[in-house]
Design a protein around this nucleic acid. Structure first.
Lengths: 277, 277
DNA sequence: CGGTGTAGGTCTACACCGTAGAGTACGTCC
DNA sequence: GGACGTACTCTACGGTGTAGACCTACACCG
């Protein structure tokens, strides 16, 4: 290692790559030219460096892509802090739309009871904004969406990958924290996660398969859960529940899809009635 | 041109390619080896033919991929006919799941009123099964899902494309027919389509952008709508409504997302209450 | 019959891709 | 001075999609 960490440009050092600069440049390139325009050679050229130099810092192109989505997912958190610092609370402009119901609160059947018991725990990884959990969830997801819209390629890469990156995992943890904090059971939170992550209309599978792809022993799962217990408590909780196949009935893809579909159709029918009545 | 159109196999023709055989082989290859395993050379080898021969029948690899998804989407219709022939009606096993509500009918707020006025019109492109529109929609989407699951690569290709193929369009038409037949307004149907086609959790955009990507004149749109009027009446209807920006307020991505998100969150909150109560 | 047009398929070649593997310059430490 | 690790470069290989010229067999026509 060099003695003083940051003496770039000292002699005639040609570029001074680093994992971070590479990833940042790659993101910039992908933002400009799309995923198709991102090749190792073009990226290297962009950095004023030989293509193979990149491979010293990142094993693969796949590793690069993973690092890129991770960086983007990490932006969600930063955006959140900024938002929390500048604004007071929630209110993201997800209000009235089209024909039927407007917000979550005043719609269909039983009048306006939305939040329930509000955020009781607010937990270790709790999201910033106060207010009913429904508003918190909406704000969190809207923030994620806004971040992803700045990097249109990111969604595609994310979908293509089969394992979530750390920052994505943290985002999921935050979503779970809101759900659990809002009074949703572990089981319902689990369904919710699948629901939020899967596309409907009959196309497409789930975003990630949390079913035991690596058929870990129950002991292993428990060990991992313990390791995550303080950093990602809600994910750990869910992982344990899912692995005890008895408790949640495992994690059947078909059931998850049906759950999501039922929920959507029910919501549509409710909107229809509100529209007509 | 040849005199009699269909005298293939006459002499010793080496392979007798055709667009259909190529597409079928490509689908088979993709089913076996995944999208990554599908290269023009490998496909040609599989067909016992030079790679460039394929280009006589299909302009591009992109054209090939489009033809592949179109063929898969067309399977949905065939499956539907088979189903309609063998079984009587609906009932696709999308019943009880996990903690909260079960089907559409008996859930949350106001008791069991689901179908409403049932299928009044049933229209030209009407779906087979009778029963409440909610059941029809569920059956239709489940059928699509089952087809897509047989070709795991298809969803990815479909998402990557930005224009729907004819068979996909027909599927959408069928979905719209059910919605409209069930009493949903054009506006609500429009929202529903976006809802069903877009992924939530903050990632990803819509499946297709129906906003005027080709900024056609209103006259053009009307002309196209007229041309489609009998083959795809509901899509035509919707297209006209959307193009009259006043009527539906155009088609704002943000609004569509908010609509979907609200509907989901409302549904989750309802499940939560049902669970606790 | 020979000539011609053309549908269907092949061959060659090009630019680009990811990346293995060897080689090179340099700073640090014994 | 020599060994060593770090950061980077060079060369090369096997793959990709596809443009463009080429070939071949057959249908047609005078």
């Amino acid at each position: 290692m060099p003695r003083h960490a940051d003496d770039r440009s000292a002699t005639r050092a040609p570029a001074r790559l680093s994992r971070e600069t590479i990833v940042a440049a790659a993101i910039g390139l992908a933002d400009r030219d799309g995923l198709a325009g991102l090749s190792m050679r073009r990226l290297a050229q962009h950095l004023g460096v030989d293509a193979m130099s990149i491979y010293y810092h990142l094993r693969d192109k796949d590793t690069l892509l993973a690092a890129m989505v991770d960086a983007v997912a990490a932006e969600i958190e930063v955006d959140g802090e900024i938002e929390a610092a500048t604004l007071g609370g929630g209110g993201t402009g997800a209000a009235a739309v089209g024909g039927g119901g407007t917000g979550v609160a005043a719609v269909g059947g039983g009048g306006a009871r939305a939040g329930g018991e509000a955020a009781a725990g607010s937990g270790p990884a709790g999201a910033g904004a106060p207010g009913p959990w429904t508003d918190q969830l909406r704000a969190l997801i809207m923030r994620a969406r806004r971040t992803m819209l700045r990097h249109p390629w990111a969604a595609r890469v994310l979908e293509a990958r089969d394992t979530p990156t750390p920052a994505v995992l943290r985002h999921i943890e935050r979503v779970l924290a809101v759900l659990r904090g809002g009074g949703c059971s572990v089981s319902l939170s689990h369904h919710a996660l699948h629901l939020l992550g899967s596309r409907i209309l009959g196309f497409s599978q789930d975003l990630f398969d949390d079913s035991p792809n690596t058929p870990a022993t129950e002991a292993e799962t428990a060990a991992q859960a313990a390791a995550w217990a303080e950093s990602m408590p809600h994910i750990a909780e869910l992982a344990v529940a899912v692995s005890h196949s008895g408790a949640l009935g495992g994690c059947d893809d078909e059931d998850e899809f049906a759950f999501a579909l039922d929920l959507l159709i029910e919501g549509l029918d409710r909107r229809r009635l509100a529209e007509q009545g």
